[in-house]
C-alpha cells in the first residue's frame, strides 16, 4: 500500500471533526460553570445552576463546533444537545419520584404490612397494613378488566374488520369522547345509576363499573391500532384458503396482534389502578377486610394512600404507611408492565 504512507491531502469530502469525547467535555464544563456561577452569585436553587449548565451545554456545543467543523455540523450538535437536555428534563422527575418513594416507602414495607389490615389499628398507631386495600384493588381492577377487555376488543374488531359507514364513524367518535371523560364524571354517572336510581349500596363492583368506563376506550384505541398493523395480505391469504371471515379474524388476525393487544390491555389496567375519584364515590373505603366485591364498602390502594396521608398530618406511622402503599402501587404497575412486555416479546411474530 504505497499511498498509505502519503500525508493525507485536503479532501473535499473530509472536514475537521471534533473528538468523540467532545460533548462529554462540554457537559462537564457546563456543569462546573453552572455551579461556579451559582456559588459566586449566591444562588440557592439547584434549578438555577442546572438551567445555566443546560444553556452553556447547548451554546458551547454550537460555538466550538461552528468554529471547527462548520455550520451544518454545529446545527446537528445543537439538535443533539437539545434532545439530551429534553431527555434529562423528562427523566429527572421520574427518577426523583421513584427514589423518593423508595426511600420513604421501604421503612414499613414488609410481609406483615402486606398481610394485615387496618382493622384494629388507629391512624396514629404503628403497625397495620394494606392487605384489605390490596384485596380491594385486585378485585375491583380484575372485575373492571373482565368487563372492559371483551367489550373493548370486540368493538375494535368491529371497527377494523367490519365497520363501514355511519355506525363505525359514530362509534369512533364516541370512543374518542369517552377517552376524555374525567374519572370523577364516570364515578358520578355510576353513582346516579347504581346507587341513586337502582338503590344499591356502595360496593367494589360499582367501582369496577366506573373503572370500566375509563378502561374501555383505552382498550378500544390500542387494540384498533394493533389490528390495523396486521398486513392485509395475511387476511387475504386466509380468505383465499376458503376460511370464513370470523375464523380468519380468530385464528390469523388476533394471534398475529396478540402481543400488542396484551400490552395495550396492561397499560389500560395500569391507568385505572391508580384511579381514586370513582372509588371514593362508589366503594367508600374501609379499614376492614371485605373480600366480597358485591356488597359493602371495600378499600383500595389509591384511596388507602389518600386516607393515610390525610390523617397523618405529614408525619408518624400513617405517613410512613402512605408511602409504603404508594411504593406497593408503583411496584404493582411496574410488574404488570414488565409482564406485558414479556408477553409481547414471547408472542411477537418471529
Amino acid at each position: 500500500m504505497s499511498h498509505a504512507s502519503l500525508t493525507p491531502r485536503r479532501s473535499s469530502l473530509r472536514g475537521a471533526t471534533l473528538p468523540k469525547w467532545f460533548p462529554w467535555a462540554v457537559a462537564a464544563a457546563s456543569v462546573a460553570l453552572g455551579l461556579a456561577v451559582s456559588a459566586a452569585a449566591g444562588l440557592q436553587s439547584s434549578i438555577q445552576w442546572a438551567l445555566i449548565a443546560a444553556v452553556c451545554f447547548v451554546g458551547g456545543n454550537y460555538g466550538v463546533s461552528a468554529r471547527v467543523e462548520g455550520r451544518r455540523q454545529a446545527k446537528d450538535r445543537v439538535a443533539t444537545s437539545l434532545v439530551w437536555v429534553a431527555f434529562l428534563l423528562a427523566v429527572i422527575p421520574l427518577a426523583s419520584l421513584i427514589w423518593e418513594t423508595l426511600k420513604r416507602g421501604v421503612k414499613v414495607l414488609d410481609g406483615y404490612f402486606l398481610s394485615h389490615s387496618m382493622g384494629v389499628v388507629s391512624d396514629t398507631e404503628p403497625g397495620g397494613g394494606i392487605y384489605h386495600a390490596l384485596i380491594g384493588t385486585l378485585e375491583q381492577v380484575g372485575l373492571a378488566t373482565l368487563f372492559s377487555v371483551p367489550v373493548g376488543v370486540l368493538t375494535a374488531i368491529y371497527l377494523v374488520e367490519y365497520g363501514r359507514g355511519r355506525l363505525a364513524k359514530a362509534v369512533t367518535f364516541f370512543v374518542d369522547v369517552m377517552t376524555g371523560i374525567p374519572s370523577i364524571v364516570a364515578g358520578l354517572f355510576i353513582l346516579s345509576l347504581w346507587v341513586l336510581i337502582l338503590d344499591m349500596g356502595p360496593s367494589g363492583i360499582a367501582g369496577s363499573f366506573a373503572l370500566s368506563i375509563l378502561m374501555i376506550p383505552v382498550v378500544v384505541r390500542s387494540t384498533e391500532e394493533m389490528l390495523k398493523l396486521v398486513p392485509n395480505e395475511l387476511r387475504e391469504a386466509s380468505l383465499a384458503l376458503g376460511v370464513p371471515k370470523w375464523r380468519t379474524i380468530l385464528k390469523v388476525v388476533l394471534p398475529t396482534s396478540l402481543g400488542g393487544i396484551t400490552t395495550g390491555v396492561m397499560l389500560a389496567i395500569a391507568r385505572i389502578t391508580g384511579e381514586t375519584a370513582p372509588v371514593l364515590l362508589l366503594v367508600w373505603g374501609t379499614n376492614f377486610i371485605n373480600t366480597n366485591p358485591l356488597s359493602g364498602p371495600q378499600a383500595s390502594l389509591p384511596m388507602y394512600i389518600y386516607l393515610q396521608y390525610a390523617n397523618s398530618g405529614g408525619e408518624g406511622a400513617a405517613y410512613d404507611r402512605a408511602w409504603a402503599a404508594a411504593l406497593t402501587l408503583i411496584a404493582f404497575i411496574m410488574i404488570l408492565n414488565l409482564a406485558a412486555r414479556a408477553i409481547a416479546r414471547w408472542k411477537a411474530p418471529r
Partner: peptide, 27 residues
C-alpha cells in the same frame, strides 16, 4: 379455487407445518 399472491405471505405466528395445515385446520 385457491390462490397464490404476489408477495409470499406465510402466517407469521405459525410454523412451517401449521402454515401448510392452516387451510385444513381452520376449516
Amino acid at each position: 379455487v385457491g390462490m397464490v399472491f404476489q408477495r409470499p405471505n406465510p402466517f407469521p405466528t405459525m410454523s412451517v407445518y401449521d402454515n401448510v395445515a392452516a387451510g385444513l385446520r381452520l376449516n
